[in-house]
Design a protein around this nucleic acid. Structure first.
Lengths: 349, 349
DNA sequence: CCGAAATGGGAAAGCGCTATCCCACCTGTC
DNA sequence: GACAGGTGGGATAGCGCTTTCCCATTTCGG
């Protein structure tokens, strides 16, 4: 006889413990605790419930997962969670997961495609029901192919994958309609009378960035507008500040009548840069952003922007991923809405 | 002989598959894949690695967890992830978890103490290494006792618990020093010459709220200052807007020389309310916030606030929870730093 | 009343891993 | 040459749970 493995005496109570205490078989205990289809006599049912309560029993999810062959888990991959864009999406995902009775595990990739890859590898080990990949795709990353291969493998094992940015490899996506949003914004500012737009935005390797800028151009051109210059920096507040300053100092801001930022943070940073240089945003030059973050309405002047239902996108993606019907790998673009505010008044001239 | 359970043929490859393909025992395969202390001949090692690669094998974490008796998981409980306060903390937690090679699962409670409870119950089933509870404690919730009991049970099973707000039940915490921060801010504005503070903040049932307000008072009083009135609403931007308006419309704002908000969002909303009523923030009345959110530096006038290293707090809590040494249940208060900006200029009078 | 069809319970075979034993073989050593 | 001490490999007992079988009772229609 083998020596029994040293059992951690202080370990958690197991189903066997519950069954023993209730004086029934494990099978019965399991049936009660999972209210399975199989009926259990009221007598026994009560005793099991009571035993479980008294022992402070909690089903071991790992064991359950392995026995059932599937874990009630949804994995979310984001570049950063400390960014309103992603946290809004995450909020929606979490809501949906909660109503589906599923646990959310989150991995942050810090915009590092290699880390993205290793994260997916690890996550696959959890055998989640689905993997949601947010975080703007970086064009031509050397790891993209590997990522796609990894996700394909996951799908082959029965998992679902949904991108919250432009999809690759024939997988599905639910995402903000950046191009269309850009077009509408471009048309809107052109209708306000602006014709020469200077753009401050993130790295052109981020697809979100190129989609927005390109959309903007497409919206303005038919109405006689034009993008005079594009300056890139980090896709955040300080990037907005810095690139706006560069534009001003190099004189390229001088002939623009509107400054379009790639997102609201950049817009807000850029407005500060303008002010620091004695230019009055909304007065000497119009300003626009993207996303409609909460403070967009509180800066002065209030920021014109494009609002996307981010939480709704997250929710929808998760619903799709967790729904019973296998979703076709669609590329669903959720439209945005132009919010015209004081930073972009009808042009006086 | 029993009929073997219908095996999902499309399932993921198992360790047995890898071992078979490599022509070795499962034990050997396991040893290679986990680079265990036990050495394996180079021959076999290579073959196992190759087989794993060819099969696109991913260790099943649930199975591993159950076999090892512990899962590489850290659970984080927050009120909302769509709130810069919590997402900053979450970011820090995720960073730490990543360096510890641990997966993060996140549960949002929507400030609902009952949901908080059920979340902890579910989470315990994951047998995580630790549970981090963020989200301001609500005083006197009927569920608090149950929550504590649940966390105690978790600790009894070998898990660790850390609060990121005021701890209860003798458990540990790492949290922003709200009281001290309030005191310092109170003293700072008094030194700027302000004496009569109106406060707009969240529900007095939130401990964060009372700690900050009380600290503020303690900081001002010794220097001859006083809190003239406190108005509560939701702890966010619109709550700030609404409560500021109520203060103005009821005339209670008239005799205050500084408006102190419970957090930056409320401050920003309140500033908009002031402006909507023709009062110039930073000019007719000083304004302060709490937390130093990114846009605090970009509103006009730039917002005076108290900065807390939120991500650092999250990281530290996670480090503590994942460290090898069992941490004593300390209540660690991380100090904040008063950031004096234009919204609170030296008082002219 | 009798056999058939429920009904409710238990035994035990996995699920995919890890880790303990055990064993066969290879070195050295006196 | 025999024996103590490595070394590397394989069998296999769990880990905690689900679920399939199987079995003993009841319940009924005819």
């Amino acid at each position: 006889m083998r020596k029994p493995r040293t059992r951690v005496s202080s370990g958690n109570p197991t189903l066997a413990d519950v069954a023993a205490r209730a004086g029934v078989s494990q099978a019965t205990a399991s049936r009660v605790l999972n209210d399975s289809a199989r009926k259990v006599g009221e007598q026994h049912r009560q005793r099991v419930l009571r035993a479980a309560r008294e022992l402070d029993y909690r089903t071991d999810l790992s064991a359950q997962a392995i026995a059932r062959g599937t874990a009630p888990v949804l994995a979310l991959l984001v570049s950063s969670i400390d960014d309103p864009y992603f946290s809004a999406i995450a909020e929606g995902v979490a809501q949906s997961a909660h109503t589906h009775g599923v646990i959310v595990t989150i991995a942050i990739t810090a915009r590092d495609t290699e880390r993205e890859l290793t994260s997916v590898r690890t996550i696959r080990g959890q055998r989640p029901r689905a993997i949601l990949v947010s975080g703007s795709r970086v064009t031509e990353s050397p790891h993209t192919a590997a990522l796609v291969a990894e996700l394909r493998g996951f799908a082959a094992g029965g998992g679902r994958t949904i991108f919250l940015s432009r999809p690759v490899g024939g997988l599905g996506a639910v995402r903000p309609a950046n191009s269309a949003g850009g077009r509408e914004l471009g048309a809107a500012i052109a209708r306000q009378g602006y014709r020469r737009a200077a753009v401050v935005t993130g790295s052109p390797r981020l697809e979100t960035v190129t989609e927005r800028t390109e959309g903007l151009r497409q919206g303005m051109v038919p109405l006689g507008g034009v993008i005079t210059t594009v300056e890139s920096d980090t896709f955040d507040r300080s990037g907005g500040y810095r690139s706006a300053r560069r534009l001003i100092e190099s004189g390229r801001m001088a002939d623009a009548d509107v400054l379009c930022a790639g997102n609201d943070f950049m817009a807000v940073g850029a407005m500060t840069a303008l002010r620091d240089c004695g230019i009055r945003p909304g007065h000497d030059i119009a300003v626009t952003g993207f996303n409609d973050i909460e403070t967009a309405a509180d800066v002065t002047p209030r920021l014109t922007t494009v609002r996307f239902p981010l939480a709704g996108i997250g929710r929808r993606a998760a619903d799709l991923a967790l729904g019973s019907a296998a979703p076709p790998p669609d590329d669903i673009c959720v439209p945005g809405q132009v919010i015209l505010r004081a930073s972009c008044p009808p042009r006086p001239g």
